[in-house]
């Protein structure tokens, strides 16, 4: 199943491009189309592409994190950045911005950090679901792919 040379070459090529696109989407998301959710989906697509091309063992090595903890951390991180507003007497999730945009990154404020949390959450959940399903369904093929992958 994992023996298509075209798919493997493309997957290897696409991994950095997709991850960069994901970060790009994440950083423009607070006032243009994009955002943490889309960015997270693109990033997890990059990992799932490795999963399809090389099998789950290889995909697990792309980012050496526990995806479930990543998801939980993302939710925690996103929720926490609504709190500063609450402490200053504003409603939850009211935005705070640094007045001057940072070159190359853009304006930085609590919504960007919130988006970052969403990004982690989506990457964690989506990749974890895909990996679990792949590992559950084809335990034999996964071990085959582990030996076949370069």
């Amino acid at each position: 199943m994992y023996d298509s040379i075209i798919l493997r070459s493309v997957a290897r090529l696409m991994l950095p491009i997709l991850l960069m696109l994901a970060v790009f989407m994440l950083l423009r998301g607070h006032n243009l189309p994009g955002g943490g959710f889309i960015g997270g989906l693109v990033a997890s697509c990059a990992i799932i592409l490795q999963l399809v091309a090389f099998g789950p063992d290889f995909a697990r090595r792309v980012l050496r994190v526990n995806y479930l903890s990543l998801a939980a951390f993302g939710v925690f991180f996103a929720a926490v950045w609504g709190l500063p507003a609450l402490l200053t007497g504003q409603p939850y999730m009211t935005a705070f911005w640094i007045p001057d945009p940072i070159p190359g990154v853009g304006k930085i404020g609590t919504p960007v950090l919130f988006d970052l949390g969403v990004f982690f959450g989506v990457v964690g959940v989506t990749t974890q679901i895909a990996l679990l399903l792949a590992e559950e369904r084809n335990p034999r093929e996964a071990s085959d792919a582990g030996t076949a992958a370069p």
């Binding site: 903890s69 939710v75 939850y92």
Partner: peptide, 15 residues
């Protein structure tokens, strides 16, 4: 917001 934020953050922390 507190009865929403507290369970959410606690759930994430306890995972």
């Amino acid at each position: 917001f507190l009865p929403l934020v507290v369970p959410l953050i606690s759930a994430a922390l306890s995972v």
